[in-house]
């Protein structure tokens, strides 16, 4: 076998595996989107309906507007308020993520440049994240009720901020480590005060990393379920909690509506991802700075 033949076989195998993998990954997404356009009788029809026929947007109208269309009579759902949940999620996730990334960046810089945390402490920080949230949620809800944080946006922001902080510190540290110290020192000896070195030299060089970290944390907080369920739920409802309300003992699962809501939850993330994709590619490939 010649070398080029080997290469061809190699790439055929590679692409076949990747295609299979892509199908496995993409199928649930496809299923979500297609279900959201199906009329109610096709939600769990047998034989399986893969492509909605006829297409309908009634699920979307039902979930996202006040219009109660035909199919509803069959499944009576308590009045849902997805837009309020959407607003809550947006506010809580963005605030918590911003806090996490800003604080994370400050700590990561301190660790990278001044070792404010030793290696052991850094590892302990990561270990914190390995505790399953279910372990802390019961005592936490006691504290929260004592502090009046239960069922408040502030309470959720606080816990999201704290639980994602280890991730942002670790991720951002790896980006800051990539910026050679000497580049900063060069700015310093050329007369730049500390803050200008940070703003003009360090920040532009880790911008992609910050954006990548931001999106990562945003996805975590945007789709968080357990803490939102146990620490909030009635006054403050986030989208994942809202989603869980589309099923019940009497109504059964309202798949079409759920799918329509899920699409609404997913689209903003995809949208943000598209806007910042240039940074993501760079942020996740590291090593952008030539030494």
């Amino acid at each position: 076998m010649t070398k080029s033949q080997k290469n061809r076989i190699g790439s055929i195998v590679r692409y076949t595996l990747l295609t299979i993998w892509a199908v496995i990954v993409a199928f649930p997404l496809y299923w979500m989107v297609s279900t959201s356009f199906k009329p109610s009788e096709q939600w769990f029809a047998w034989p399986t309906v893969y492509i909605p026929d006829p297409w309908t947007i009634v699920n979307y109208l039902d979930v996202w507007t006040d219009r109660q269309e035909v199919a509803t009579g069959q499944y009576i759902i308590s009045a849902q308020r997805p837009w309020i949940a959407f607003g809550n999620s947006l506010m809580i996730a963005l605030t918590a993520t911003t806090l996490s990334v800003v604080y994370g960046a400050v700590i990561a810089y301190g660790v990278s440049r001044y070792r404010v945390l030793s290696e052991v402490r850094m590892f302990q920080l990561l270990m914190l994240r390995m505790i399953p949230p279910i372990v802390i949620v019961a005592p936490l809800s006691l504290y929260y009720s004592a502090l009046g944080l239960l069922d408040t946006a502030t309470g959720l922001i606080l816990i999201y901020f704290l639980t994602t902080l280890p991730y942002s510190v670790w991720m951002l540290k790896s980006f800051i480590d990539e910026v050679p110290r000497e580049v900063e020192q060069a700015a310093e000896i050329l007369g730049a005060p500390r803050w200008r070195t940070l703003v003009e030299v360090v920040l532009p060089l880790v911008r992609s990393g910050i954006v990548a970290t931001f999106l990562f944390i945003l996805i975590l907080t945007w789709s968080e379920y357990l803490l939102a369920l146990l620490l909030a739920k009635t006054e403050v409802v986030t989208l994942p909690i809202e989603l869980s309300k589309y099923q019940g003992t009497t109504e059964g699962r309202v798949y079409g509506r759920q799918a329509a809501l899920s699409v609404g939850i997913t689209v903003p993330l995809v949208f943000i991802g598209l806007i910042i994709r240039k940074h993501l590619a760079r942020g996740f490939s590291f090593g952008m700075i030539r030494r």
């Binding site: 050679p180 000497e182 580049v183 020192q185 060069a186 050329l190 952008m288 030494r291």
Partner: peptide, 13 residues
Amino acid sequence: LGMVFQSHALFPH
């Protein structure tokens, strides 16, 4: 003082 680093340490951006 002025310093030229071994790695040159130019601002890459």
